[in-house]
Each structure stands twice: as C-alpha cells, then as structure tokens.
Design a protein around this nucleic acid. Structure first.
Lengths: 110, 110
DNA sequence: TATTTATATTGCAATATTACGATAAACTAG
DNA sequence: CTAGTTTATCGTAATATTGCAATATAAATA
C-alpha cells in the first residue's frame, strides 16, 4: 500500500519516524554535513554543493525543514540555512536511551 | 523517479542513510523500543506486540536486520531478537558529531 | 520598469515502500 | 508420520518517494 498506519502508533513513535525518515537519504545527509562543515549559516550555495538538479535540492531542503531539522531565513536574494537544534534534540534523547541500554546490557543471548 | 542516485554520494553518506531510513517507520521504532523495554532477547512475541499482520511485521524485522540494527537467532520453534550494537554504533558517531557542533556553535544567524 | 539571480512549485515518469492474503518452510509435539 | 506453531516468501494493490524539465515567484539591481 505504501501507506503507513500511523494511527496505530504513539505520537512519539510517529514523530521519531518522521525525523529519521528525513535523515534517511544520502542527499539530505550531505546537506546536514555541509552545514556542519562550513560552520556558519550557508546562504545560497547548497545547490552547487550537490550533484542534483535545483528543483530536487529544493525538495530535499523542504523535507528537512518540515521535519524540523534545518531552519531557513531569507537574506536578501538568497536564503540562509542552518541546523535546527529542536529536531536534533528530539532524536538525541532517543539515541541516548538506546546507547545507555546497550552499554548496560548484561544478558545478551543473540 | 523513486530511485536514489547513490553513486553520487560517499559510502558513509549512503550507509548512514540506510540506517536512518530503517529507523524511519513507526512500526520499526516500536520494535526497537519493545526490545529495550523487555530488556532481554525477545523470542517470538513481536508479532503480538504490533498492530500489524504477521507478514508485515516479518518484513519490518527483515529490514531492521538487513540494516544491521537487530540480530535474530533461531531458538527452537521461535526466533530470538535483540538490538545489534554494530548498526547503532555507526549512527551514534554521526549524531555525536552533530551534537558537539550544535553545543559549540557561536555564530548562529538563522 | 526590465533584467538578473535565487528559490519554489507544478506536473509527470520511474521506482520504492507498505500492507496483507495465500502459501511455503521449518521446527515441535504427539 | 501428522498436526500444530512460528516465521518467511510470493504476489499484488495502493500509496509514497525521487528526480527533473518547465515554469512561477520573489528579491536585487541596473
């Protein structure tokens, strides 16, 4: 069906899946890594950094923005992008709990 | 097209995207959370934990396994599942670098 | 105002994902 | 061996995602 039965899962599970899904594409990971690498807001050169056409990049940026992983503000002609702490904060909590569990785990049978 | 241009991205970017994509579904997050909650290997009750048909759950388990996020061993009639540290370790590094960046970031303009 | 530059939207084709019924496969118990 | 239990696979329908050409929009500047 391609349709996810979101209504059967908790709000937290759906929220986390949206965030992870947004990260689940190499182009969007490349965008995130570029924003970190440049270490400041990036105004208008994201399209040139990626091996994809402008509409495609625009779409990926939109998805990252909708998921709350990046922010974008108009800066004259261009748009400045940077990471959005809010989205990453939510994932952080999830992965920290997993890591804590894995570190303390004793009775592993697999 | 629905087809990702993986050849244009680095191996690390593709690997991370596969892991994030595998987590990017509420059913698969529910599976991960259940394995943590029970705090031991879970042998054969995963299907009953999820509001989805057995073939669908089997498919989700397969995807988590292929991505390296869970392990599954035959235990007589049933199969025992638990988290796979290897997969989560790779994501951990990625998110730690993002968190370090976000914590030290000074010149935010967005 | 007209032109240029940067980004977004639309529309569409190709492919991927999600879900499940039917069925198969593998093991246990009797 | 037969029946029951558990998990995997196949086949298929419905929907989602990816990518881009064409086009629209918006701001800056001449």
């Amino acid at each position: 069906m391609g349709i996810t039965k979101t209504e059967h899962f908790t709000e937290q599970q759906n929220e986390l899946s949206v965030l992870a899904k947004a990260i689940g594409h190499p182009a969007r990971i490349a965008i995130i890594q570029h924003l970190i690498k440049v270490n400041s807001c990036v105004c208008g050169d994201i399209v040139n950094e990626l091996p994809l056409a402008q509409p495609t990049v625009s779409q990926h940026l939109k998805e990252l923005k909708n998921a709350g992983l990046i922010k974008g503000n108009f800066e004259g002609n261009a748009i400045c992008y940077c990471l959005n702490e809010e989205g990453f904060g939510k994932i952080k909590v999830f992965f920290e709990s997993i890591n804590t569990y894995l570190e303390n785990q004793k009775n592993q049978c697999c």
